[in-house]
Design a protein around this nucleic acid. Structure first.
Lengths: 355, 355
DNA sequence: TTGTAGGCGTTATCAA
DNA sequence: TTGATAACGCCTACAA
């Protein structure tokens, strides 16, 4: 059945009553409600969403703007975030609108989404250190939740983030506790807010332990396999290569391990590796999949939190406004006490010395 | 400015005229048109999309239904496909609606999308060998394009696919030409239509060369890193391990190479590896990124083709209906002439023998 | 508890 | 070339 009118004629009821019955208004008698619901199912009726949107002024749609730029790449972590958010939308009756735009168009896209009422709210992805988007969206009057948070004005909007600083601090401390002092960091791009905080955590742990921060042991790039590989190659070419590496993503770690293996360094033996684990489903590091030591926090859950929080706000429900997730250290076999292993690459440059 | 009415009052023109001017109808004088367009920009007016949809009966939205099931995973190849399709939607003024649903809900979701007019068309992802979706969507009267094609009724709907059979045949022939006879296949899940065709291509090349098809040299699983790893471990445990491996995805290849390295087999030396390359941006195998020999066809372009074709059909334009893309063999350093290399794992089980 | 009537912001059909 | 006016399909005061 196409529309309300037809159904109302068929049932001999007014459109109003049917609408009320279907939308759960209290003033409808249980008998009619049952009759209406039954008839709706039978005739396969469902309200036209455009009409409903026009009448209510709500779109029941959440927008995700995905700027495409570096290597024309969509961040591979995006898939799992979307899986989490999408499940919530589905459950709560919202649609997910994804706009793939040139990064220069991003601001214009937000304005357009607002202007023509296509979305009720926005999820902001991958905030940079000082990001103009929160202020802009606030000015537009478009509800939004940020996945992550900026460095300068995080108190002024709703966000869901992982405690990246603490996570990387803890990971670094763990390595220090194992006796490592040459600890490398394979970080994400450092204009990203999260990468900045991760570096902060890493450096603070080093300083606390009286270890000098060494720029040659840090890299900053996209969190993808080839970047991890290149970074590790550079580290291994140093006069004093690291004995441990901290990776910002399992994808980077893949590259790091590849480069390490080329030098006959096995994780947990020749080198200690610990990586931040978003629980990317397509890598499936799993409870023990790769035996890696990880700092774990599922990006998928972040997606769920973002979606829930945004919908709550749109619907005027009370909400936390800020959720800070804690990553959890899970020991695997890729980290071990620091002792220059036989066959270590550095060994034939400088004979193994204690300390 | 919020709506047509206000703009019309401001300009002293009827809503009709303004609508016509903005939508490029021919019967408007150039003078008024210019005036209207100018005013629209100045007052930041844009038609409300719900209202327009209601009036036209078109949603200008394309739906992608993503069933989530295996390991709660969204296929990682999805991101790049979306990047391609999304760019086209953006250019042609369409929205992309993504529904993440439980795989049991998929059919119901299509029906719902049709019923309430949320989308003008659908992209069907990852068809299985005999897939009910094309018939179902046809019956629903929902325009669609399939990325890939079924085995039984491919002639009955529009699709964009890679010539998987030919690609895998050619890849296998290439390895055979290098003298390999123990060639393994790390395939995708074989209820998927594309995986079936790939296997077909692989087997036909073997048969043509008089090489027996050996079930122990074939694996079929998700195209992700850990699955590739496991498959390769099994192959390497065989009495006569393969001298060459054909991988269905760069992600599987990553796992395969990892397992190979653990046995001191280097690609291009101890073992030949060739993989199907979707040009996943986050792996960035690149023109020479990893030096792999690949069969290449960008999944991103498939996304573009699908989107264009679907929009053409929705708008009643003439269209090809079928696009068969050819993958291209690109030689890297991961394939070499077959000769049992020193240190090959099989060597200490059976001394190297020619042939 | 049910119905009537008006409005949501466009587009489309007629007249003028 | 322009303008009334009626859809489009639903929701929601207000009335009964």
């Amino acid at each position: 059945m196409a529309n309300l009118k037809q159904l109302s004629e068929k049932l001999g009821l007014s459109q109003t009553t049917i609408s009320r019955a279907l939308n759960g208004y209290p003033e409808v008698s249980e008998a009619t409600r049952r009759r209406v619901i039954e008839a709706a199912r039978e005739h396969d009726y469902e309200p036209n969403s455009s009409a409903r949107r026009l009448a209510t002024g709500k779109s029941r749609t959440i927008g995700h703007v995905v700027p495409i730029s570096h290597h024309d790449m969509i961040n591979p972590h995006f898939t799992d975030f979307i899986a989490g958010a999408g499940a919530v939308y589905n459950r709560r009756g919202y649609d997910m609108l994804i706009s793939v735009v040139d990064s220069a168009q991003e601001a214009a896209t937000y304005r357009a989404l607002k202007r023509n009422g296509r979305v009720d709210g926005i999820i902001v992805h991958a905030p940079i250190v000082r990001d103009p988007r929160p202020a802009m969206l606030r000015k537009l009057g478009l509800p939004f939740v940020v996945h992550g948070r900026t460095l300068d004005d995080e108190a002024s909007y709703a966000w869901v983030d992982v405690n990246n600083c603490r996570a990387f601090r803890e990971a670094t401390q763990h390595l220090i506790g194992l006796g490592h002092r040459r600890i490398a960091l394979v970080n994400g791009l450092e204009h990203m807010a999260f990468a900045q905080r991760r570096r902060e955590g890493y450096e603070s742990a080093l300083r606390e332990a009286g270890i000098a921060v060494d720029g040659t042991l840090m890299s900053s790039d996209e969190m993808i396999e080839p970047a991890g590989y290149e970074a590790m190659r550079r580290f291994l070419a140093l006069a004093e290569p690291p004995t441990a590496v901290l990776c910002a993503s399992a994808l980077s770690a893949l590259g790091v391990m590849g480069a390490a293996r080329e030098d006959n360094l096995l994780p947990g033996t020749g080198i200690s590796i610990i990586c931040y684990d978003d629980c990317l489903s397509f890598l499936d590091i799993g409870p023990d999949g790769m035996g890696l030591t990880v700092m774990r926090s599922a990006i998928r859950e972040a997606g769920e939190h973002c979606a829930s929080m945004l919908i709550d706000r749109i619907e005027g429900r009370q909400t936390a406004g800020r959720i800070l997730l804690e990553a959890k250290l899970i020991e695997g076999r890729s980290t071990a006490r620091c002792r220059p292993a036989p066959g270590r690459r550095a060994a034939h440059k400088a004979p193994a010395t204690p300390g």
